[in-house]
Every structure is written in C-alpha cells, then in structure tokens.
Simulated scan of single mutants.
Amino acid sequence: MIEISTSSTTTTLVIAGDLDLAERDQFPEVTARVVGLRRQLLVIDMCHVTFMDSTGAAFLISLADAGRRRGGATVLRGAAERDLFVLEICGALDLFRVDAVHACEPADGASPPDTADAPA
C-alpha cells in the first residue's frame, strides 16, 4: 500500500508491506502523481516496508531521479538496513538523503517504551 500526502513544499509517500515485483502495477500511477505535484522535497516513509526487491528499488530510484532533475531532494525515512543495502548495491544510495534520526512507531501502533524513568 502506498499513500500520498502533500504540504506546500513536501510530498510524502508512506509505504507499507512489500515493495516488489508483485506491486509494480501501481508504480507508474504513483510516479505520475508524485512528479505532477512538483514539490521540492519528497519524503519516502519506509517504516512499514516488509520487503523490497530490485523492482521496488528501481521505483524509488526513478522517483529520486525525477526530483533531482527538477532540483529537488528525496529523503528516505525509516528505511531498514536491508533496504539501504539494496539501494547501495544498485549504486543509487547517493540519490537519497537518509533520515537516520527518525524513530518508527512499532507496527502494532503502541508507543515506544518510555526509558526516561528506567533504572540505570
């Protein structure tokens, strides 16, 4: 599942589930919508991506490349190490800014444990 939201300067894609060959039919429509919005910043939220293959990587690369040609930037938020590895193997990791600070919410929707009061 891919959801698109926008603000005046940013388009955000929230991706959940697999980003692979089985999902490729929706990639052209999503790409056309994102490119048509012409925002300077594209944030791709990958917190809930369970699997990404080279087809999914090619989709992300095409989005980042289209943004870069317009002078924009693409940020990967919540990408797992395995997903970053796929992009690195494809030689495309430098097309993205990686948000290493973002902390994803757990998949069950529960808040992360509060460690401020934990004993030392």
Rank of each mutant, 00 (worst) to 15 (best):
A57C: 03
G56Q: 06
D53G: 14
V30H: 10
V75P: 01
T74R: 02
G72T: 01
C47E: 08
D18I: 00
L37M: 11
E3R: 14
V75K: 06
I2F: 08
C90T: 10
L93Y: 05
R68C: 02
I15W: 11
T31R: 15
L76G: 01
A118V: 15
G72M: 03
L87W: 07
A116M: 12
R77P: 00
H48T: 04
P106R: 11
G71M: 00
A32C: 04
D108H: 09
V86D: 07
S8D: 15
S54L: 11
L60G: 09
I89M: 15
A107V: 12
A58R: 14
Q26H: 05
R68M: 01
T31P: 03
V14R: 15
S8T: 14
L13K: 12
T12L: 15
V86I: 13
F96H: 13
P28E: 12
L60W: 01
G109W: 12
V101D: 13
E88T: 14
E29K: 10
L87I: 11
I44H: 03
R70S: 01
V49E: 09
L13E: 13
G91M: 12
T74W: 07
D25K: 12
V30E: 07
E3D: 14
F96R: 13
R24Y: 05
F27E: 08
L42R: 07
D114K: 06
R70V: 00
D53N: 10
G78H: 01
G78L: 04
S111I: 12
D65Q: 11
G56I: 01
F51C: 05
P28T: 09
H48P: 00
T50L: 02
V43K: 03
E3K: 14
I4C: 09
R33K: 15
Q26P: 00
M1N: 12
V14P: 02
L60V: 06
V43W: 01
V101H: 09
L42Y: 07
S5Y: 11
L60E: 08
L93G: 11
M46S: 03
D45I: 02
A58G: 11
R39A: 07
L19V: 09
R33T: 14
E88V: 06
R77T: 00
T9C: 11
G71H: 04
V43L: 01
A103Y: 01
R82I: 03
L42N: 02
A79L: 07
S5V: 12
D117Y: 14
E23W: 10
E29L: 14
R82Q: 12
V49M: 08
R24D: 08
C90Q: 10
R77L: 04
G67W: 03
G91W: 11
S62M: 05
S7L: 13
H102N: 04
L84K: 11
L13G: 14
D117A: 15
D99I: 00
A120F: 15
T10G: 06
T50P: 00
G71N: 04
G109C: 07
R39I: 00
C104E: 05
R77S: 05
E105S: 10
T10H: 09
A116E: 10
R24G: 02
I61H: 00
